[in-house]
Structure formats: structure tokens, C-alpha cells
Design a protein around this nucleic acid. Structure first.
Lengths: 216, 216
DNA sequence: ATTATCTATAGATCTATAGATAATGC
DNA sequence: ATTATCTATAGATCTATAGATAATGC
């Protein structure tokens, strides 16, 4: 697992620097996700990374910088997955409902594989305007991508106003996945279903809204 | 604004106790909502309430107890509004879409009038299992109430399986309102619309899913 | 020679208490 | 006489630094 270089700037001159920095970033991401950023001390992070506090500060000048390094790494990873999803030709010849299914599975998996992502983003967004706008940008681009991709399949829809229909469907998918992943405060009945049954139920609703004949 | 007595127990023996306790609870609710619980010191709270730290500790033994007092007051207030919404005869003679409209407007207003509610609940739920289950219970009862209320109107639906349809619709309303209120991390296109237009768009989707003729 | 690591600790907060002073109400 | 308030401060964390020791790589 190599870490992409980002704003914070990797500063190692020896091979072990990379190892230590990765260990620290991994430990920080875990702990921030489990307990929250504020509740995690830099000493906690150093301990889980099996390094001393002095070593940690040799690589990251402040706690704030460490937090940003963790966030940068998270965002870079997610952006890569999103780019992959919207790669040209990826959905060639597939109907709208396949795209929606891929989107639902993808966004569910994305949050599952990064347990701390939501929590860290939320906590940091409360104080840091730049992180907030980066998180928003990520969501924005994802939504835009999904909408324009679906609109290329508008001939499949019976809905009189495809643009409005697609906008609603995209929002609904985003909101429902968010509610499903963030089970703490927004419990829904669909949360009790397995991922696959959840996706199936959503596809039925999407078909009803866009007025697609579900045939597959 | 009288505060309902809750678990934490009001302990005043003089008239000014009530005033001070209310001032402290108001200040705490504001600050916890603005900056978060962790980032707010008890001295901050005392200052905004125009009382000394000694006075604060005379009324609330620990910061944890103060936090719980704030949460209790929030939950009690919300429960009251929910009871009001589901009061018998409240929706007599009104069609399903009116109920959904009332629900959407109500839940939107509920979060708007208590800016800190979501944030406080989320932060506290991360560490305190009891608060988590109380928040969940609130949402659970609301969802149950909405579903059973809507099911009494099932003759209006063309949907072949009203129970499934209603479950989906209730979840969708909850998730979409949550996404709209929590604009930080879950931006949606519908967030750009006014509350009224958002409600209208939602009602169209609900009508499509349940297969209701929108006539009103 | 340079870079990375460690231990020990200074300095800044933040929660909570002690003890003195002021206000209330039987 | 009892309750509420205030000021001052003890004790617990937590971030960040200083300075000594160990490992790396030209």
C-alpha cells in the first residue's frame, strides 16, 4: 500500500521514513475513525504506530498537519475509485438500471472499505472550510457524473421530464446510501435488509420514478 | 420557556436556581451545537450564561451530566412535537399525500428550530450507547407512526404491495430530509430548491412510487 | 554527515474543588 | 440557617520541543 504524495508533502530521505509515515497515517486514520479526531491524542497515534511521539513530530509538524495528511490520502483514494467508475466506455451498451445498480454497490463498498471516512470528514468539516469544500466537491462531481451518464439513456424513460426525473433519482440514491451507512442517527427500515435486497428495492423505486419497464 | 424535569433532576431550592439552570442549558445547547461538545469547555458555557464556573458546578456535578441534561431537554421537546403530529383525529379525512406533506414540513421545521440537535446527538452517540438508543428510538417511533398512518390510506394506492411501497416511501422521506438538513456532507441537487419546491418534488416521487393519481 | 528515533519535560488547556462572600426564604 | 455565587487554584491531559542516541547512505 503506497501512499500517494499530496499537499502535505512527504519529507523522508531514508527508506524507513516511508514505512514510519505510512504506519502513522494508518494508525491515525483508524483512531480518528474509531474515537474521533479530538478524542485521539497524538500519543495514542504514535503508540498504535509503534513509534515514539518524537518520531511522529519529526514527520508531521503539528497535529493539524497530520489530520490533513490523513484526509488527503482518503480523498485521493476515493477520487481514484470515482474516476474508475466514470471511465469512458465503462458502461457502454448497458441500460440505465445497470448503471444505477453499479452506483449503489460502488458507493456502499466505498464507505464500507473506509470506516472512518464519513466520521473524519464530518468532524473536520465542522472546523475547516477547505476540507468541507473538498468533500462537497467530491460529492458534487459524483452526482454530476451520475446525472449526465443517466441522461444519455433517456430514451429508456417514460418520464415526461427526464432531467427532473434523473435529478431526483440521483439525490435519492445518494441520500439513501448515506442513511444506510450512517446507521447511528438515520435508521431506516431498508437498513435491515442485506445490501443486495436493498439495491433491488431501490432499483424498483428508480424504475417507478423514471417509468422504465424492468425487464432484465 | 420552562424546562421539563428529566432524568438529571432539577435541584434548585431558590427561585434563581431555575433561571440559572435554564441559562446554562441554553448556553450549553448553543455552544455544543456551534463548536461541538468536546471543543466547548465548561468555562465557555459558564461565560455565555453569565455565571461563574463555580456556580455551574453547583448545579451540574460533571460536564457529562450537563451534556445529558441538554440532550434530555432536546429529546423531550422533539417527542412532544412528534406526539402532536400523530395525535388521534389529526389527519382525519385527509389523503395520504397530505400526510406526507405534513411529515416533510414537520421534520424540516424540527431540525431548523433546533440547530444543534443533529450535531449534539451525533457526537454524543459516538460515545454514549444510551443516548444512541434514545435517538434511534425517536426515529424508530416516528417511522413506525408514519408507516401505519399511511397504510390506513392504502385504498388510494395502485401499488400492488402497499406495505413495501409505504416502507420505501417512509425511508425515502427520512433520508432525503436528513440529507437536506445535513448539507455539510451530503449535498443534493434538491438542496438548492426552496423548502416548498423540495416538498413538491418529493410528493411527485411519492405519488409515482405508490401509484396515486395526484389530483389536489 | 545526515537523518531518524527515543526519553523527558515544558507550557497550555480543561475539569473539578476549596473556601470565602452574598442572597434567599422560613 | 440554608442555598447560590464567586475567585483562585489543584491536578489531569495533551501538544509540542530539546537534546541525547542510533541508524542510514554517500
Amino acid at each position: 500500500m503506497t501512499t500517494p504524495e499530496s499537499r502535505w508533502g512527504r519529507r523522508g530521505h531514508q527508506a524507513r521514513s516511508v514505512v514510519t509515515q505510512d504506519l502513522i497515517l494508518d494508525a491515525a486514520e483508524e483512531l480518528f475513525g474509531e474515537r474521533g479526531i479530538d478524542a485521539t491524542s497524538v500519543v495514542d497515534v504514535a503508540e498504535r504506530a509503534d513509534r515514539s511521539i518524537g518520531s511522529l513530530y519529526h514527520h508531521f509538524d503539528t497535529k493539524e498537519l497530520l489530520v490533513h495528511a490523513v484526509v488527503d490520502r482518503l480523498i485521493d483514494g476515493i477520487q481514484t475509485e470515482i474516476d474508475d467508475f466514470f471511465a469512458p466506455n465503462r458502461w457502454e451498451g448497458r441500460p440505465a438500471l445497470h448503471i444505477v445498480r453499479g452506483y449503489l454497490r460502488g458507493t456502499l463498498g466505498l464507505d464500507r472499505s473506509r470506516p472512518g471516512y464519513k466520521r473524519i470528514g464530518r468532524e473536520l468539516s465542522m472546523m475547516d472550510a477547505e476540507t468541507l469544500s473538498r468533500y462537497r466537491g467530491l460529492r458534487q462531481r459524483t452526482g454530476d457524473g451520475l446525472r449526465s451518464l443517466l441522461l444519455t439513456r433517456k430514451d429508456e424513460f417514460g418520464h415526461p421530464d427526464p432531467k427532473t426525473g434523473v435529478r431526483l433519482v440521483a439525490d435519492m440514491c445518494t441520500a439513501m446510501v448515506a442513511a444506510r451507512v450512517d446507521r447511528d442517527t438515520t435508521p431506516t427500515q431498508l437498513s435491515r435488509l442485506s445490501d443486495e435486497k436493498f439495491v433491488t428495492a431501490m432499483l424498483e423505486a428508480v424504475a417507478a420514478i423514471l417509468q422504465i419497464d424492468p425487464e432484465d
